[in-house]
Design a protein around this nucleic acid. Sequence first.
DNA 1: CAGATTGGCTAGCGGTGCTAGAGTTCCGGT
DNA 2: ACCGGAACTCTAGCACCGCTAGCCAATCTG
Lengths: 192, 192
Amino acid sequence: MSIQARRERERAERERAIIAAARDLAESEGWDAVTTRRLAAEIEYSQPVLYSHFKGKDAIMAAVAVEGSGDLAVELAAARAAATDPRQAVAGIATAYAAFAERRPALYDAIFNLPVALSFASQDTPVELARAFAELAETLRPFAGDDNLETFTETFWSGLHGLVTLMRNGRLRREEHERRLAILVDRFTRLG
Amino acid sequence: MSIQARRERERAERERAIIAAARDLAESEGWDAVTTRRLAAEIEYSQPVLYSHFKGKDAIMAAVAVEGSGDLAVELAAARAAATDPRQAVAGIATAYAAFAERRPALYDAIFNLPVALSFASQDTPVELARAFAELAETLRPFAGDDNLETFTETFWSGLHGLVTLMRNGRLRREEHERRLAILVDRFTRLG
DNA sequence: CAGATTGGCTAGCGGTGCTAGAGTTCCGGT
DNA sequence: ACCGGAACTCTAGCACCGCTAGCCAATCTG
């Protein structure tokens, strides 16, 4: 039975290798450079092996996205924990969010932009994504007022998402980035 | 000389046909269906003809985006003109913006999402896009407060953009859409 | 040790964006 | 009126893409 165990272990290892290779390649050269052929070469197996682990390229990207959203959740949690007062917590988590998107654009794309079947607003939301969202929600709780917290959080989050995506695509003046973040935070932390 | 004139006219006509075919195909079947071969078949010319008009597929998409942003500007202007008071103007233009993105997702993608060389925040911004932005800015002017109007507008616009893109990708609960819009408008129309 | 099963491989399909070079049509000067 | 040359469009093909069928070797089972 231990032979089977070894095989399963090796198989799991290879699966992690595929995800890691896809992530690294995407982060260093963009998702266009992530082709099944290059991925196969990277893990030193032939192309069809990928399809015994994942249904297709989209599934690989989805796996990368799930892994990446775990990183995002960790960074958001750290930012929230480091804050001293509620308002500064919002500013901190917003900065952390934007920094993540800026530092790891390919990963951010996989999580939020690419038309990957990672439905967020439903049962099969990956737990990592739910955690990242929960960090945002807890940070915003003091400022939601009469609004439903989840809806309020979605709106603030959309603001962050819009800021980072529009800036990355060259639609916003980069030098005003921090000021825009400040405006967003200011507008969502007014009481009453 | 009139022969040359006729040729130039026909050439311009064909160029418009290419853009129209790309737009229609994208809107009815998505950008993935817009291939150079199908486009060529649609205009009843061979593939290489496309490249005598545009540098490549990206340039065609950019042309569609420019045309589309004219439509967006018109709809935003109409929404602003129809409003009776400043706060309702913001709500109206926000609704119009979201409706445009919802009704014409492929066009919206071409304008704002696709990594197309349509740099917005620079000199070569298409005049149509600048007009759409100006409509937003004028509507928001009464509420900018101490913030720079352009920066304030960029932030609000990012909020709209985030709402529509995240919802379209299934990351937001569709049934809460109007409530989120209301929250965004509310937060950006508070005075003092 | 023979047979069955598993699993990775080679090769190939139909598609993509794009381009080289052939061929045709039409214009302008003699 | 004609012919050389320019302008233009086409056919054919390149290198790549995601994905899969079917072979073949290694391994496990009786």
